[in-house]
Design a protein around this nucleic acid. Structure first.
Length: 153
DNA sequence: TGTGAGCGC
């Protein structure tokens, strides 16, 4: 009886925690060093917005290492048209880094994707779906060693 | 334990 209660209770707790806003999630998932509710201006204003601006692009974390880009696309495709889905993998080992990106065709779809997938289970792991931050500008790695003669010809 | 927070090439 008691054993039968264990798994559902854990699953429920995980889902509840996952359904909390991202800021609160950080509080629940880690031993927070910053108790912002003790701060006077915490209620009036939140200086740093925890959530990125809405985009068609989603950042998905908490993925199982076994989840592939195809699995990611399949899971998110039930809530909208997925234009692109990618699990980020380590270049040398090929293993998943445990997070990825899903780009929907429209903003409406991406909103539905978050609502439908955030805090849900995928391959046995509770995943987090949120709007992705704009990708860092691509700068080609300049592997040229500094010339002893300087950069002038 | 591809040891688990994160933002990709």
């Amino acid at each position: 009886m008691a054993m039968a209660m264990r798994l559902p209770a854990i699953a429920r707790a995980a889902t509840e925690m996952a359904s909390a806003p991202v800021g609160l999630r950080r509080l629940l998932c880690s031993n927070a060093t910053n108790f912002s509710f003790l701060s006077p201006q915490a209620n009036s204003e939140t200086p740093a917005r925890p959530q990125a601006d809405p985009t068609t692009n989603l950042f998905v974390s908490g993925l199982s290492k076994r989840t592939t880009s195809e699995g990611l696309r399949t899971a998110f495709a039930q809530f909208g048209e997925v234009a692109d889905a990618k699990v980020v993998t380590d270049r040398v080992s090929g293993y998943s880094k445990g997070f990825g990106f899903v780009r929907y065709a429209t903003l409406e779809d991406s909103a539905k994707g978050i609502a439908g997938m955030d805090g849900k289970f995928l391959d046995g792991w509770v995943i987090f779906a949120e709007y992705a931050r704009p990708r860092e500008p691509y700068r080609p790695q300049n592997n040229m060693p500094p010339s002893p003669y300087g950069n002038r010809y």
